[in-house]
């Protein structure tokens, strides 16, 4: 069983579009399991039409809670809090639950023992079925911490299902950026497929996210989306990849059918034939060969 994560440093470059297309193409050839690791803005469900089989609570972490009866408004809690999470009051202090990071510093320092720590539900996660295979996805409540923990949970569940059912590939739709959810999404992956767009911001984002996956030892492949938008930037990405020994496995042209397919709630490869679908099919066959023929190992060798 192999695991592939789809990433991009910059947001909106087409991760989910590619993930949905690969889910469609891969599922025609082998059993797969899907995971949406963009837990604060999960979109894969919008094009895979999942049937939710199970909905579970995600307990993210804890928050401080003040008992106003016991609080004497001495202010020690506010002095020790580094996150500005205490709101002063004349008779009792209150906790700003969005600012509180659950460190419990106030809990240990409160002389009146007026503070307790409470576990908080930070989101939901789901086991679903789609026409391409099982999907594990989640919804982190707005502004919650611990997105990395929820990403790890969703990924682990997908992996366990794949091991149980003998699926060949786990396909993970990753979050944007380079921070904790991206690090969590990349951990243990056999390959990272970076979706880059040929813009100055896209090139910059690609460099940073490839730095991140490289730092954690995950080998990279690159696909350029909207490749015909700016040929010069496209070549810049290709040259950058060549310099790192990273293969560019696809160049997907700009086409409004991508948005049309999204509006119809379908993967673009399922919605229409045409240049975008052709490019995605070609890309999938290369990615499949690399990840299944223990290509992941050889990709890693090249990148060393």
């Amino acid at each position: 069983m192999k695991q592939l994560v789809i990433l991009s440093g910059k947001g909106g470059t087409g991760k989910t579009t590619v993930a949905a297309a690969l889910a469609h193409l891969a599922s025609q050839e082998m059993p797969i399991v899907l995971a949406d690791a963009d837990v604060d803005a999960a979109n894969l469900e919008l094009v895979l039409d999942p049937t939710k089989r199970e909905e579970l609570k995600f307990m993210g972490g804890q928050l401080a809670v003040i008992d106003p009866e016991k609080c004497t408004a001495c202010g020690i809690c506010a002095e020790v809090c580094r996150f500005d999470a205490l709101i002063p009051g004349d008779e009792a202090y209150r906790i700003d639950s969005l600012a509180c990071e659950g460190c419990a510093s106030c809990f240990y320092q409160c002389p009146e023992e007026a503070i307790r720590m409470e576990e908080q539900q930070a989101g939901l996660w789901f086991r679903s079925d789609t026409r391409f295979g099982p999907l594990f996805h989640a919804h982190l409540f707005a502004g919650q911490e611990n997105s990395g923990k929820l990403v790890t949970l969703v990924k682990q569940q997908a992996r366990l299902r794949a091991l149980d059912t003998g699926a060949a590939v786990v396909l993970v739709d990753g979050p944007p950026g380079i921070g904790c959810p991206v690090i969590s999404a990349s951990a243990g992956m056999d390959l990272a497929l970076h979706i880059a767009e040929p813009t100055v911001a896209g090139v910059h984002g690609l460099e940073r996210v490839m730095g991140t996956t490289g730092h954690f030892g995950v080998p990279s492949l690159v696909a350029i989306n909207k490749a015909d938008l700016n040929r010069a930037r496209c070549e810049e990405i290709a040259a950058f990849c060549a310099g790192r020994g990273v293969e560019v496995v696809g160049r997907i042209p700009y086409d409004d059918v991508v948005t049309e397919a999204m509006v119809q709630g379908r993967p673009v490869t399922e919605y229409t034939d045409g240049p975008v679908t052709e490019a995605l099919k070609e890309m999938w066959s290369r990615v499949r060969d690399l990840i299944l023929s223990d290509g992941a190992g050889s990709v890693k060798e090249v990148q060393r």
């Binding site: 989910t16 963009d38 982190l140 911490e145 997105s147 948005t259």
Partner: peptide, 26 residues
């Protein structure tokens, strides 16, 4: 992008949040 803690930190203390969106399901 997103809605997790870095976004909340960027919004905290603002007078106004201007949401830039595209007219698609995503």
């Amino acid at each position: 992008p997103g809605t997790a803690c870095p976004v909340v930190e960027s919004m905290r203390g603002a007078d106004f949040v201007l949401m830039v969106t595209e007219p698609t399901p995503f």
